[in-house]
Write a protein that binds this DNA or RNA. Structure first.
Lengths: 158, 158
DNA sequence: GTTGAAACACCCTCAAT
DNA sequence: ATTGAGGGTGTTTCAAC
């Protein structure tokens, strides 16, 4: 079965762009910006939601207020490349709440994890938890010294 | 002047955790979950907002619905390490909308960029735009073959 | 696609405790 | 901290065009 997805026109793109930047916008406000009535906008939002394009509103928070001052990108090389092992590794990593992102990648490494935690002590704890119970070939961390751009909206232009 | 930040207690942490996962929760619903009256919750939200801890609601969208099917982590090594150059580079990169994240990092590389775009053609366009007008020493891309965890809430426990 | 309206939920701000 | 209440805003769903 082919994943079809719903049709998205330029007004939808504009709506998605606005909502990515501020999910608290009122329907009236969005409707005015895109040149629709509030009623017509409501029907589009319902359609986008039912089509799975809208995936819920998230509140962005300042991690530093919680002491989350360290971001590390961890590269992992493994020996076992079976799908079963990968799924087990995913489950293992998913239990570590400081991991905010995980990718299976190509190139010199097999996995890449984004970690957000409290200083080096927090990172050390994550590192130990990550490497306990799983045979990882190599683990290297790239430490973010400065977040220059963060959490930008996806490019909706098409 | 020292950045002080506001005090965050365990109820605040619980509130932040809930809002990170669903910014559309009603104040009544949150208040009930954390054991406060709606009125008391409102005061806490106002305080968290004025303290800069809450940074606005964003709608999460399904990039694939827009054809955004390729995520690449680009590592960049440069020759010039002055702060002026870095700021110019940041401005240059910020103009490329497919860059959703940019970090100055330590280790083998100087910068790391997260790119979300439409297939290899889209990546090629981003790559050319990135490397035009700026002398970069080395540029390498790690291609995400599978996003195993994405956009998880920050760990509020403390 | 549009306007208008009714019913409802939620938010914000009081006052009182 | 709590409850209760009033006014205002926003959403959802109609009917009619």
């Amino acid at each position: 079965m082919i994943e079809m997805g719903i049709k998205i026109d330029n007004i939808d793109r504009k709506i998605l762009d606005l909502l990515q930047r501020d999910a608290a916008l009122s329907q009236r406000g969005i409707a005015e910006k895109v040149g629709l009535s509030q009623n017509a906008l409501w029907r589009r939002l319902k359609r986008l939601e039912e089509g799975g394009v809208l995936r819920g509103a998230r509140m962005a928070i300042d991690g530093r207020a919680l002491g989350l001052d360290l971001t590390v990108f961890v590269m992992v090389r493994t020996r076992n490349h079976s799908m079963e092992w990968a799924e087990g590794f995913r489950t293992h990593v998913a239990r570590i709440p400081q991991v905010v992102e995980m990718h299976r990648i190509g190139g010199d490494w097999d996995y890449m994890l984004k970690i957000v935690t409290r200083g080096m002590g927090g990172y050390d704890a994550v590192y130990r938890r990550l490497t306990t119970g799983f045979e990882l070939d190599t683990v290297t961390g790239f430490f973010s010294m400065e977040t220059m751009l963060d959490d930008r909206p996806l490019d909706v232009s098409g």
